[in-house]
């Protein structure tokens, strides 16, 4: 599976195992097909340690995950962790670096 979903109380960790997020929509499909109630999570964390390539379709997928869990709520904390520096720059370019909390790879 390209993504693992690890819920813990009101926090959800998604660990992406694919090296690329570029349009196959597998992360969002996995989320939608899970039994998880989107409204119960106060924070979402996506671990992108394995990801070395992400394009605008990948950004669309991350946004889809965010919108799915946020629902009608005013806000939702979403953290992208272990982000490659090139990918972090892309989030900056598309002005999403302040929408998501981005933590670079150590």
């Amino acid at each position: 599976m390209s993504v693992a979903l690890i819920p813990e109380n009101d926090h959800l960790l998604l660990v992406v195992h694919s090296s690329r997020i570029d349009g196959d929509n597998k992360i969002f499909m996995t989320v939608k097909q899970s039994d998880l109630e989107p409204g119960i999570f106060a924070s979402i964390e996506i671990d992108l340690q394995a990801v070395v390539y992400l394009n605008s379709l990948g950004i669309a997928e991350i946004i889809s995950v965010f919108r799915y869990f946020k629902g009608e709520r005013e806000k939702l904390k979403m953290v992208l962790k272990n982000v490659d520096a090139s990918i972090a720059k892309l989030f900056d370019v598309v002005e999403l670096a302040h929408v998501f909390e981005i933590h670079l790879k150590p």
Partner: peptide, 22 residues
């Protein structure tokens, strides 16, 4: 129309902005 408002986040429409940034 890149938006900074999380409530109005569109999933698409960033490709050309990315091209012009690089």
């Amino acid at each position: 129309p890149l938006t900074k408002d999380p409530k109005k986040l569109e999933t698409r429409g960033r490709g050309i902005h990315i091209l012009q940034s690089f």
